[in-house]
């Protein structure tokens, strides 16, 4: 297939970028979206031009490195799919495809399509962990956990931290990500000792990073490659409220 690509090119964080058009012939429908970009880059390199910078790592939908706004949608038009698992058969011969980086103040552009998502790491560092004693691993069944909670925690833990929620949100809010990282612990016994502290610190860090505020459009859930539910956001809204009251009432 033949494609018209319109790709955001930006030299570095400070430079102002622009859309550059490229024509690509002989794209196989069996290629993944990233393989299509690899082909483009090979051609650019052979012409002595600067290849397009984009993030990727596992290319099997588990690491969360790949990003890209494809025709205005995070990870492209297919639901529940990362960019690396999107295939060119989703597009038609002769299509024009606009490719942009995930845009948010908290995700500065490093180069072209690659953005710096360390704001997510800092949110997790602020409280997205459990403190456990070292030593032998405990028996897996030593702590009984209700099946419902285990399922919900597992669903929340499916978040790969790709940032599509932020990219798709009209307000560039990070609520879906933060709430998933908070819920996976809030739902389990191991997460209880740090429960309140975690909610307060993670939300505080999220705000400090300059993400927007949630207005409940739910574009995040619709764009999430792992189908994380906005129920987690409601849980975080509760956790934060209760944590605040409890933190005040402590001696």
């Amino acid at each position: 297939m033949k494609l018209h690509l319109k790709i955001w090119r930006q030299k570095d964080t400070k430079a102002s970028g622009k859309i550059v058009s490229y024509e690509l012939n002989d794209v196989s429908p069996d290629m993944s979206f990233l393989e299509m970009l690899d082909v483009l880059n090979e051609q650019l390199v052979s012409k002595g031009e600067d290849p397009v910078a984009f993030d990727h790592d596992c290319r099997e939908g588990i690491c969360g490195m790949c990003s890209l706004m494809i025709n205005g949608q995070a990870h492209g038009p297919e639901a529940l799919t990362t960019t690396c698992q999107l295939h060119m058969r989703k597009f038609k011969d002769g299509d024009t495809i606009v490719i942009e980086p995930f845009r948010a103040r908290a995700f500065p552009i490093v180069k072209d399509l690659a953005v710096d998502r360390s704001a997510f790491d800092r949110v997790v560092q602020a409280g997205g962990y459990v403190s456990v004693n070292t030593g032998n691993a405990e028996d897996a069944n030593a702590i009984p956990i209700p099946k419902e909670n285990a399922d919900l925690a597992m669903d929340a833990a499916a978040c790969i931290g790709c940032g599509a929620c932020v990219a798709a949100c009209p307000n560039a809010a990070a609520m879906l990500f933060v709430s998933a990282k908070l819920s996976q612990f809030a739902l389990l016994p191991q997460g209880q000792p740090e429960r309140e502290r975690r909610a307060l610190r993670m939300v505080d860090q999220m705000d400090k990073e300059g993400f927007g505020n949630c207005t409940n459009h739910y574009e995040c859930m619709a764009s999430c490659p792992k189908g994380i539910d906005v129920e987690n956001i409601a849980r975080m809204n509760r956790e934060y409220g209760f944590a605040f009251v409890k933190a005040r009432s402590k001696p």
Partner: peptide, 26 residues
């Protein structure tokens, strides 16, 4: 005001999924 500031540079092309934003929420 903060929500606008959270994305200083707009997308060149942005399309909603059809499963989120509604005319009422927008």
């Amino acid at each position: 005001f903060e929500n606008r500031a959270a994305r200083p540079q707009r997308y060149v092309s942005k399309k909603n999924t059809g499963r989120g934003t509604t005319p009422s929420s927008a």
